[in-house]
Amino acid sequence: MGASFGGYLITREVGRGGSAVVYQAQSPEGGQCPPVALKVLDEQHRTAAWQTRLGREFEIAATLDHPGIVGMYRHGPFWLAMQFLGGGPLTRLQATGDRLAALAQIATALDYAHHRGIVHCDVKPTNILLPQDFPHSGAVLTDFGSAHAVVDDVHRRQPDPEVSLPYTAPEILLGKAPSAATDEYALACTAVELFTGAPPFVADDAAELVDAHLRHLPPPLPNTFGAATRTVDLVVERAMAKYPARRYDSCTEFVTELSRAIASG
């Protein structure tokens, strides 16, 4: 490695997505400063539109000061420096208690963002990371590249966000504006994947997956929770209701009901 951006010295690659690479990097201050995560647009995506998108990601996340939301430090034309989380993805958690604790922490972070007019719009397991000292420090929501500010509905609408189909709520597929309930739906899909190894709907092509989100109830869970499984199914069904108004009033309420259902087994 050894390359640098804005004085941040890259030490290793830690992740790669469709438009950017994430590196572990050393702060310009050096010394005992903790490492940072450096997100760098790849060569093909260093266009004006993608640079604007990256800058907006930084600006939205930087307005949110919450331990469950990734901290932002600095950004340049095609890079941004943020909090480094070295504990791996959410899916590495094996204990039911740890999984529920992480989901509750992310629910709290989402509710915090929603109360400030921000919808994440891309909640999924790969966008939830763990610190090395989890559970002492909680799970953290990352990647606000698709985030939506509710004020945009009044003044200006952003282009339709890129979607991660296995976690996308019906209203987004129908071209409607996202809301807090949109993130709740995605969090429910994430919870199902965390406990079963796969999101609620799995299909061979995009059209089939879209149809499932629009028309089908989430399939019953395997007998993961014994006698409590049907109760858990009902909680997930409500959080994934086709109409946003029929879902729980908050992400925290959903995870609280999910925890209560699992504990009833």
Results as ranks from 00 to 15, higher is better:
Ala102Gly: 09
Leu103Ile: 07
Ala104Met: 14
Gln105Glu: 13
Ile106Leu: 03
Ile106Thr: 02
Ala107Arg: 05
Ala107Thr: 07
Ala107Leu: 05
Thr108Lys: 11
Asp111Arg: 10
Tyr112Arg: 04
Tyr112Asn: 06
Ala113Gln: 06
His114Tyr: 06
His114Glu: 06
His115Glu: 13
Arg116Cys: 02
Arg116Asn: 12
Ile118Lys: 10
His120Asn: 15
Cys121Met: 08
Cys121Ile: 08
Asp122Asn: 09
Asp122Pro: 04
Val123Ile: 13
Pro125Glu: 02
Thr126Arg: 15
Ile128Asp: 02
Ile128Ser: 01
Leu129Ser: 00
Leu129Ala: 02
Asp133Gln: 01
Asp133Ile: 02
Asp133Lys: 01
Phe134Gln: 09
Phe134Arg: 11
His136Pro: 02
His136Glu: 11
Ser137Pro: 00
Gly138Tyr: 09
Gly138Gln: 07
Ala139Leu: 06
Val140Leu: 03
Leu141Trp: 04
Phe144Pro: 05
Phe144Asp: 09
Gly145His: 10
Gly145Cys: 03
Ser146Trp: 03
Ser146Asn: 14
Ser146His: 12
Ala147Ile: 08
Ala147Leu: 07
Ala149Cys: 14
Val151Gln: 15
Val151His: 11
Val151Cys: 13
Val151Thr: 15
Asp152Met: 12
Asp153Trp: 01
His155Ser: 10
His155Tyr: 11
Arg156Asp: 02
Arg157Glu: 12
Arg157Ile: 06
Asp160Asn: 14
Asp160Pro: 15
Asp160His: 15
Val163Thr: 14
Pro170Asp: 08
Ile172Ala: 06
Leu173Asp: 09
Leu173Pro: 10
Leu174Trp: 00
Leu174Ala: 01
Gly175Cys: 06
Pro178Trp: 05
Ser179Pro: 06
Ala181Cys: 09
Ala181Tyr: 01
Asp183Thr: 13
Asp183His: 11
Asp183Tyr: 11
Asp183Gly: 13
Glu184Leu: 15
Tyr185Lys: 01
Ala186Thr: 04
Leu187Gln: 02
Leu187Val: 07
Leu187Arg: 10
Leu187Thr: 08
Leu187Gly: 04
Cys189Phe: 00
Cys189Glu: 12
Thr190Leu: 09
Ala191Arg: 07
Val192Glu: 00
Glu193His: 13
Leu194Ile: 05
Thr196Arg: 09
Gly197Ile: 06
Ala198Met: 08
Ala198Ser: 14
Pro199Cys: 11
Pro200Cys: 07
Ala203Arg: 15
Ala203Met: 08
Asp204Ser: 14
Ala206Gly: 04
Ala206Arg: 14
Ala206Val: 02
Ala207Thr: 14
Ala207Gln: 15
Glu208Arg: 15
Glu208Cys: 08
Leu209Glu: 04
Val210Met: 13
Val210Arg: 13
Val210Pro: 01
Asp211Ile: 03
Asp211Lys: 14
Asp211His: 15
His213Leu: 03
His213Asp: 04
Leu214Glu: 07
Arg215Leu: 13
Leu217Glu: 15
Pro218Ile: 04
Pro218Phe: 11
Pro218Cys: 03
Pro218Asn: 09
Pro220Lys: 05
Pro220Phe: 03
Leu221Lys: 07
Asn223Ala: 11
Asn223Trp: 01
Phe225Cys: 09
Phe225Gln: 12
Thr229Cys: 11
Thr231Leu: 10
Val232Gln: 01
Val232Leu: 05
Val232Lys: 02
Val232Arg: 06
Asp233Lys: 03
Asp233Ser: 02
Leu234Val: 04
Val236Ala: 02
Glu237Arg: 14
Glu237Trp: 14
Glu237Lys: 10
Ala239Glu: 12
